[in-house]
Amino acid sequence: MPILTKEQFEDLAKFDNNPCISIFIPTERAGKDVLEGKGRIHLKSQWKKAAEKLKEMGLDQDKISKIGKPVEDLLADSDFWRHQSDGLALFLADGFFRKYTLPVYFEEYTYVSDHFYLKPLVPMFSGDGRFYLLALQMDRVQLYEGNRYSVGEVDVEDLTPSQLEERVGFDYEEKNLKSKTQNETTGTTVTHGYGAAERDRKNEFLRFFRAVDKGLHEVLKDEKVPLVVACQDYLFPIYQEASTYKRLFPEPVPGNPSDYENMLALHSAALEVLKPHFDKEKEEKMKQFKEMNPGRTSVMVSEIIPAIYQGKVDTLFLQNREDIWGNYNENMASVDVQDGPSSANTSLMNLAAVKVIEQGGNVYLIENEFMPDNSSKMNAVFRY
């Protein structure tokens, strides 16, 4: 499953055309809903809404059909719908089409404007946890980059040895941590003690892991996110000894990586291990909001939006499943909040979220009852 990269997100944010169509739908991985074509039904419904909006904007049917051709192709692609995750995001314009199958649930939503609507995607790049996952086996080394909603493989084939024998010079399976002999009469296996053989074996693993660590340094040297390791339990202490990465997570993903059905299952297991870390990060940001003096926080949209454009916002909390509509005049640093969406205004939540992400800040989508200050749909912590 290809990851939605921050570069792709920023390209979508910079895309400037009229009209731009953003469509979000829930999808299903398997089961009855897939057989019944629920995903197709959702997409057909949302494209119909988009087409009606385009018609209201004055586009002729030929132009609408041209923009919607990729959607019609998807609706006819049976194989595509058999390989879905939890959500599908589509971005369309004249001569432009991008689709992202992602392990995050989207409510049905369609947005037509002169820019794309990216608010449902921003937690993938802020607050909710970017990390690296190292799947470590004696005959295979794989590195993944992920967050709570997506995961993709990072090519390290030219940087790390792919198996232990490349580093230690012989097939690791020819020796065991324990010396074993078989009773020819009973067929039972007799296991002898550890001793020197075990120490030699550990040294072989250590040499291999140091070579892996050295290769990973080329990818991780400037990173400040957790690296969680999936490996057999007895190997993890040895990798800890070999690793020089300062943010190596102290708990491994249990079990051999090959025991997991696929990359999504391994990703899910990694998230379970990392959950306390990411929950703590969000809780600390919320605690900051409540404990800082009033000059370092705000719940007023008229203050927060200009502060974002000045690069002052460190953390933005947005009420989930809600929006704020209006316009922002950057020259006047003034915000005009309006009652609802119209062809003359924009989503101020989308505007704010995208800008904070571009500046390297944190954005959290929070249910109303858990907002730091739920008297407002938008809360912010300032950098200064």
Rank of each mutant, 00 (worst) to 15 (best):
L4T: 09
L4I: 11
K6T: 15
F9V: 12
D11F: 13
L12H: 04
K14G: 03
D16W: 13
D16G: 03
N18Y: 15
I21Q: 00
T27C: 06
E28K: 08
D33C: 05
G39L: 00
R40F: 01
R40L: 02
S45E: 12
Q46H: 10
A51I: 04
K53D: 13
G58R: 10
S65Q: 14
S65M: 08
K66L: 09
I67A: 04
G68M: 08
G68A: 11
G68I: 06
D73L: 08
D73T: 07
D77R: 03
H83V: 07
D86R: 02
L88Y: 04
L88T: 06
L88K: 07
L90F: 00
L92F: 05
L92S: 02
D94C: 05
F96H: 11
R98V: 07
K99T: 12
K99A: 13
T101I: 07
V104E: 03
D114Q: 05
H115D: 04
Y117N: 10
V122L: 12
M124S: 13
D128V: 03
Y132F: 13
D139C: 04
E145F: 10
V151Q: 04
G152Q: 07
E153F: 04
V154F: 02
E157F: 05
D158Q: 01
Q163N: 07
E166D: 02
E166M: 02
V168R: 02
V168L: 05
E174T: 04
K180E: 13
T181I: 13
N183T: 06
E184D: 06
T185P: 08
T188M: 06
T189M: 11
H192G: 07
G193R: 01
A196N: 10
N203H: 02
F205P: 00
R207P: 02
R207M: 03
F208H: 01
R210D: 01
L216I: 03
D222E: 14
V229K: 01
Q232W: 01
Y234D: 08
T244H: 08
T244E: 05
P252I: 00
S258K: 08
Y260I: 08
A265E: 11
E272Q: 06
H277M: 02
F278R: 11
E283P: 15
K285T: 13
K290Y: 07
E291I: 11
G295K: 15
T297M: 10
I305E: 14
Q310N: 14
G311Y: 12
K312D: 15
V313P: 11
D314F: 07
Q319K: 15
N320I: 09
I324V: 15
G326N: 04
N327K: 11
Y328S: 10
E330S: 12
N331F: 09
M332H: 09
V335T: 13
M349Q: 15
A353H: 10
A353I: 13
V354T: 14
I357K: 09
E358L: 13
Y364P: 08
M371G: 15
N374Q: 15
S375P: 15
S376R: 15
